[in-house]
């Protein structure tokens, strides 16, 4: 049985026919839609490397069956920057040395974007670490990641204030 679905990925409408309901969003992005920025780590919801936003909320794409997402809006790491202009979270990860090998970084950044939108952590390092605990970094760049999330939170709040002034 095949399953036609239509979803928006990074602002583009994508119509896909799934031959098999087992396809996860992670595999759909990487294997069918040529978006390999989202990484496969554990493939079981434990490492966070596959984090993307669905309808604005961060989730593990490895545990999400693509067939359930008809009509959904997905943002991946490829959809964050505006041309050559990095998203504030991306820029903060570069400035604060929030990675080493880089494999977990797309998931870390998408998780941070989700966390900041949720608005419960602010710039408190303890709350940021707790809020980012679904993303493992085996290079242990956690110190830089925490600083990057805190910096980006501050910068995005300032930008918002300026925009509304």
């Amino acid at each position: 049985m095949s399953y036609p679905i239509s979803l928006t990925v990074n602002g583009l409408r994508r119509d896909v026919t799934l031959e098999d309901a087992r396809v996860t969003l992670l595999d759909l992005l990487r294997e069918r839609l040529a978006l390999p920025g989202t990484k496969k780590g554990c493939d079981r919801g434990q490492c966070g490397a596959c984090t993307v936003l669905i309808d604005g909320r961060r989730i593990n794409s490895c545990l999400t069956l693509a067939v359930t997402l008809d009509g959904a809006e997905v943002i991946t790491i490829e959809g964050l920057a505006n041309g050559d202009m990095l998203h504030p979270v991306q820029a903060a990860f570069v400035e604060q040395d929030g990675f080493q090998c880089g494999y977990c970084t797309p998931g870390q950044i998408m998780s941070a974007v989700g966390l900041i939108a949720e608005g419960h952590a602010g710039t408190d390092p303890e709350r940021i670490r707790e809020g980012m605990s679904g993303n493992l970094c085996r290079c242990a760049a956690y110190h830089g990641i925490t600083r990057a999330v805190s910096d980006a939170t501050r910068r995005m709040a300032e930008d918002k204030t300026k925009a509304s002034a």
């Binding site: 949720e118 809020g131 679904g134 993303n135």
Partner: peptide
């Protein structure tokens, strides 16, 4: 319980 991503789902 769990992580931010899992709690969202």
């Amino acid at each position: 319980g769990a992580s931010g991503q899992l709690r969202n789902a």
